[in-house]
Design a protein around this nucleic acid. Sequence first.
DNA 1: GCAGGCCGTGGAATCGATTACACGGCCGAC
DNA 2: GTCGGCCGTGTAATCGATTCCACGGCCTGC
Lengths: 348, 348
Amino acid sequence: MASIKDVAAAAGVSVATVSRVLNDHPSVSADARTRVRAAVEALGYRPNAVARSLRTHETRTLGLVISDVLNPYFAHLARSVEEEARALGYSVIIGNADERPDLQDHHVRTLLDRRIDGLLVSPTDGGSPLMLDAARAGTPMVFVDRWIAGVDVPVVRADGRAAVHDLVAHLYALGHRRLAIIAGPAATTTGSERVEAFRVAMGEYGLPLPDAYIGQGDFQAESGRRATERFLDLAEPPEVVFAADNLMALGALDAIRARGLRIPDDIALAAFDDIPWFVHTDPPITAIAQPTAELGRAAVHALVDRVEGRPPESVTLPARLVVRRSCGEPPVAQAPTAQPSPLQRSKS
Amino acid sequence: MASIKDVAAAAGVSVATVSRVLNDHPSVSADARTRVRAAVEALGYRPNAVARSLRTHETRTLGLVISDVLNPYFAHLARSVEEEARALGYSVIIGNADERPDLQDHHVRTLLDRRIDGLLVSPTDGGSPLMLDAARAGTPMVFVDRWIAGVDVPVVRADGRAAVHDLVAHLYALGHRRLAIIAGPAATTTGSERVEAFRVAMGEYGLPLPDAYIGQGDFQAESGRRATERFLDLAEPPEVVFAADNLMALGALDAIRARGLRIPDDIALAAFDDIPWFVHTDPPITAIAQPTAELGRAAVHALVDRVEGRPPESVTLPARLVVRRSCGEPPVAQAPTAQPSPLQRSKS
DNA sequence: GCAGGCCGTGGAATCGATTACACGGCCGAC
DNA sequence: GTCGGCCGTGTAATCGATTCCACGGCCTGC
């Protein structure tokens, strides 16, 4: 592969001049400029980003460590992050932690070794020493979706409390009193916050949240299935299961279906995170929708601000309740038209 | 951030010795070795992958350019690719082409500039000059899922012909005669092959495939919706719609639902690519499942073989039909237990 | 006792870019 | 006419690693 030296030789100039042309430096004669451009064209030359990064100490690359690419929410987030980063002239390297702290550390380490300019993380756990050290050492970093308390890192996330409150109100209005939740891992903020918001909202309606109605999940489908089976085995099973993410809701569906129960007649189901498929499940699932694309964009902006020396800003956006039919009769005022799926809306 | 020089100074040895310790070179005294390791620990030193790559001309990184991360099939593929690559000591950088040739080129260019060791591509179009040049110039490359004819690049893919034949047989047995297909872009192999397999299979049953029953889609949900609406507007609409990927099936569902039609009574639906959600749609959707994880693994192996100087092998794996209820009454022999969703099966 | 080889080590070249600095030529100002 | 400054250009240092080569010391074999 041709190097800058080959281009210099072909154009009859020094490598310095070639470099100047490549970087649009003003003090190059028009003549030299055209000769260099011609040589670049003729040789099919492309600058070596590795060499450039070594010299300039910047890679124009951001790292994104997410918990699970198979989760449509994170896939959507990753896509929006890449899009926005590209618009700002950055590339993105995605690390999939698969909800495993060791894998998360692996990716963080690899990304740091590559000297990415900044790191976007949705932490799987309470924060490994590696990540905390990196943050303290001054690696530009922004938390997205989930975060770690006590670290001076901006956070971009959705606040679901109002939406969870709306959900409980909706369930209460439909006559449900025994509500259960499948929580995410307590080590993640989203894992504990959603339970907390749920508990608070239920408290406002005077409803108890017994321990037996709190299932422990790990944001994966299988855990949603197990937690739901446990609920259904109780002497007094809940009337509603609220899954703290969409994959656990999928597992809950599996479990409910395996018992031959009907939704919402035998048991109601709701989920955190809205995805296109929820429109077409049997029945369509009531969910709390996050402004996923906006979160991705805001996170990139915060990180790039930090990377380029501007003060970064934490951002919190509201989530909102999307009522469908999985919790009972739809509200009387519902429009007769089909509700478009969130995926398609986001494309318009 | 500490460099190898700092480590050398701290350990009282030369950089050459530090490098030897780091790379487990045998001829270093035990004493020097421990001093270097101590210095590495004390300084929290991590080798700079950028500098290393510049010197060694290898990045231990593979590029993966896929058409759409939001498509669960590709997300699954990406995950399996990353997993296998990690096991072999490689990182993966994913580029999401979003079915746009210009974006695909952008990612290929960026990846080549970064001097990745090899490239895994699922081409969006018939092959841009950029990609063809790269292949000819000797960049280690493997096509996965889709490919481009006339280029000497190994291909790892699924053969859906037998499964499509099984699908047509299934539909025929259920009494359906007017079958329509929503095709992918003709420029992609999967776009044209699936139509071709469908046409051949129908021919074997003496069924015609009029042009009006071939909808043109682009593997995105919105195009599936439009194609389906056009089918439903025909004087004689088809009895079955077969979507060539899962997102177009989602769009088809949207369209069918918007008209208030019932599946499978009013119209039947089947899809290429099986995903977990198809188990829980209303009704569960009959689909052709690809061995996605195996494809990812095989693709990585082929590419790494090529990168490391071994002869790479093309691989073709069979897809298979998964019958559910979206095309009509389930076969009498169906087991009463719920069918597990493919996502969960893949985790076991 | 001496030659040859091995072992551990350091010096220095190298990868491919960027950029500070120096230098020659030419211009305009005085 | 001379001098200062600017413009275009090239030389060389530099980024942080790897690795070839040379060198000194010691062991072994004859």
